[in-house]
Design a binder for these strands. Structure first.
Lengths: 335, 335
DNA sequence: CGTAATGCGGAAAGCGTTTTCCCAAACGAG
DNA sequence: CTCGTTTGGGAAAACGCTTTCCGCATTACG
């Protein structure tokens, strides 16, 4: 292995000088700098991560904590992940994968051994057992999602309440008066998942506010279940002319289910999805964007900021954006 | 931070003794061992990963290289990942996430800085540009997938050729004489992806061998495309009574498409999927299992073996297993 | 022109482990 | 009863880097 001493010898300088060239923590004369850089290139030198971590007490690694729970839509989750990883790399950090089964125990281990400088925690629930632990840990952490109390934390999330409301407003403005809501699988609600519950709350409140009748149902990730839920919605609310869908895995079956029940999109029933924009684009659905990349990126940026000692707000909520597409059209004459 | 010296002092022994208790590399008297263990627990000691890596030149971390390419089915990919991570943890290793965009460059960086002891590379293509690099790296690697030449490597894969053939044999034994094949999205074939091409090859060869007419088509991941492909298959082969599907994302729409074209499963058209068993179970499809967990686990076990200096076979192929379900039934009287 | 400040370089002291190397005591074989 | 051999313990030398401290030239300033 080629060490910093080898480089120093080759360049005719002291090891400390090489270190300063590398870290940029001190000004170095242009001549020395290029000389050192050249030696580094020639010898193919890579600083030893462990030695670096030991000496600087900085690992340049962040933990990505992702609980792979049933009901989460993995393609969406991976958008978060790639955005977070890419952002980390831009700040010269690597990413250690910590999965759920390791639990709070795993967090403690990774934190205690100084393997990582901070934590990016995904899929946070309303009352998450990892939250108290995160609060008292030496390393900073950023959560994607929003636990009940955000004091002392740094959280990033889409404003799901506003997102639910936005769907209602859009449909109400188009003249719809009976709106259905097709939600996540029921396990997700049982588990006290913030984003699911907040979206529903926002949806319900907005409907009340606008004097609109609404019904909501969960649905599982298969055609039969989607068909069943849509049928139930139509049965309990025969005049339903619009549907808000907050379930990526179900999206592919919604149009088919409606058609099977004799309703066409958008003429008989308008559909608004809450999902990543690409998905909505592909299916030509009006949607409130779930900005997964943006959330992942922002979360990592906030984490890096905290690692550098900058203070951060406890809660960053992204405002929802709606993109109109073919699945909703004006409907002026409805009661 | 509490160090090994603190523990040693507290237990009244030398630091080296504590180290030996921890690593088990030397016999320690039961008394000292329990005494040391107790001090460790009391002080809440965690060895510093960086220091450890430096002194032992072992990071106890493996890199998980996953290129997130279009067309790969993420839920399946994540099965590999969780199995691999779980297995790694059982061997007291952590997992560093390296994504595709970092490319060969990223591999070199991670390898050079001694951040990881080995590499688990997923989604390997027939002629993968990372393969030559992996061959010449100091750290061992295990590939999930199968490049054209496996010499000097350690690869784990399902025997996709046999899997394709197994589907044909099953259907032929049931009396089918015209079989269609619904493949992955076309980008996957264009990219020279081993598993997709091998499955098709095995399928085609088996059909020839059994004197069976076969047609194959790729399909994209949306209902319209699946419907279109199925329609084309039926048009070019009106007597088609069976369909082999090698595309997890399309599975959900196959039955619907067939029904839309006036065919019922399994009475008019039998369906065999190549996918994880849980998926097939959920949809009640006869399937050749894609043992994602098993592959992830085995790959990591092989990597650990190599890290411990054990030699490994260049290629481990898992035999395909077929599970009969409701989507195929005997069809004795067909021509 | 004297003195303080600054720029840039080197020597060396850690950082927290593991791993030699050395040693004493206990043990077993001849 | 001796002479290896094993067994369990400690002292101290790495491991490869960062960072403090020190020092010599320059430059800036009154």
């Amino acid at each position: 292995m080629v060490t910093i001493a080898d480089v120093a010898r080759h360049a005719g300088v002291a090891p400390s000088t090489v270190s300063y060239v590398l870290t940029g923590k001190r000004s170095i004369s242009p001549q020395t700098r290029t000389k050192v850089r050249e030696s580094i290139r020639l010898l193919g030198y890579h600083p030893h991560a462990g030695a670096r971590a030991l000496a600087s007490s900085r690992a340049n690694v962040v933990a990505l904590v992702l609980p792979l729970r049933p009901g989460v839509h993995l393609p969406v989750l991976m958008r978060f992940v790639t955005a977070a990883v890419t952002t980390a790399r831009r700040h010269d950090m690597d990413v250690l994968l910590v999965t759920a089964d390791q639990g709070a125990q795993g967090l403690r281990r990774v934190a205690g051994s100084a393997q990582v400088d901070g934590f990016l925690v995904m899929d946070v629930e309303l009352d998450d057992d990892r939250v108290p632990l995160l609060r008292q840990m030496a390393q900073p952490s950023v959560l994607i999602g929003r636990p009940a109390a955000v004091k002392g934390l740094t959280c990033v999330d889409l404003d799901f309440e506003a997102a639910g409301a936005r769907c209602v407003d859009h449909l109400a403005d188009l003249g719809h008066r009976y709106i259905g809501f097709l939600g996540a699988p029921s396990v997700v609600y049982q588990r006290n998942t913030g984003y699911a519950q907040r979206t529903m709350a926002g949806f319900g409140a907005a409907a009340m506010r606008r004097g609109i009748a609404s019904t909501a149902l969960p649905t599982e990730d298969d055609y039969e279940s989607v068909l069943g839920s849509v049928r139930s919605l139509l049965r309990s609310q025969p005049g339903m002319t619009a549907l808000v869908v907050h379930n990526e895995a179900a999206l592919g079956w919604v149009a088919g289910s409606l058609r099977a029940l004799g309703r066409r999109v958008p003429d008989d029933v308008a559909v608004v999805a809450i999902c990543p924009d690409e998905l909505a684009e592909q299916m030509q659905l009006t949607s409130v964007q779930l900005p997964a990349e943006e959330l992942g990126r922002q979360a990592m940026e906030l984490l890096v900021a905290r690692l550098n000692g900058h203070p951060t707000a406890p809660l960053t909520l992204l405002p929802p954006k709606l993109s109109g597409r073919a699945s909703t059209t004006p409907r002026l004459r409805r009661a």
